[in-house]
Amino acid sequence: MTTAQTRTHGINIGALNRDEKPQQIENFETCIKIEDLDLFYSGKQALHKVNMEMPRKKVTAYIGPSGCGKSTLLRCINRMNDLVDGVSIRGRILLDNEDIFDKSVNVAALRRRVGMVFQKPNPFPKTIYENVAYGLRIQGVNDRHILDEVVEKSLRGAALWDEVKNRLNENALGMSGGQQQRLVIARAIAIEPEVILLDEPASALDPISTLKIEELINELKDQYTIVIVTHNMQQAARVSDYTAFMYMGELIEFGETSELFTNPAKKQTEDYITGRYG
């Protein structure tokens, strides 16, 4: 690990906030660095010159109104946008100082390092056990003992073990929405990624399930770098350490969550978090 190189001391977001007071962020270890990222959907620009650095083993939240590009940005980090026809990307995203858009990068291997959980729970129509074991089986791990161990560990990690330990061989589609979402998280952590991307993970869930997911995020951040997209500002305030506000494809403001919510540097941010638009 190239810790010495990746350690960045107090990046200057001033470049983004041009005129206003430069924002100092506490020392952190950069995990993901986005440099001058432009993204086009069939010629239409969806992201404009996005620059940001996300800290390791912290929770970074993207907030912003619908269509502002926050999900698009998130999906760049594990190159999910490759699947969409007509997408072209300019700029770089560095994961541990390596450009993920580099030709030599194996996309499948990248996605093993950067896991993702989607808005709607999307368990496979298989048993609970097989859902969690899926990533490992892809990697060719078929040893029953290893799988058993990993499945249990991952389900415990996703705070689901106690609920499902007696029905591991039942179809995952029989679970409740909240359970399914936690199962999907368990599935993601089973392959031990470095980063977990959460794309509005609680938006399809009821309040209690949402609470459970949020608690889970708090526990997971000890081990993983987490990036979460959310519509819900309270949620961002509750779970994240850092928050990025995006608007119309641009990163407007990025900073510590407590700072951004209490003392936004930009007018647009203030308007959004006080509910004046969006």
């Binding site: 999910m80 699947l83 499948a108 996605r111 896991g115 989607f118 990533g135 089986r137 892809i138 392959i191």
Partner: peptide, 23 residues
């Protein structure tokens, strides 16, 4: 087959062929 299922598999590091074959 819903897109979300394919994405779920790809996001776990499966290649397209593996996604096709397994899911």
């Amino acid at each position: 087959i819903p897109k979300s299922i394919r994405e779920g598999s790809l996001a776990l590091g499966a290649t397209k062929a593996e996604t096709l074959w397994r899911t």
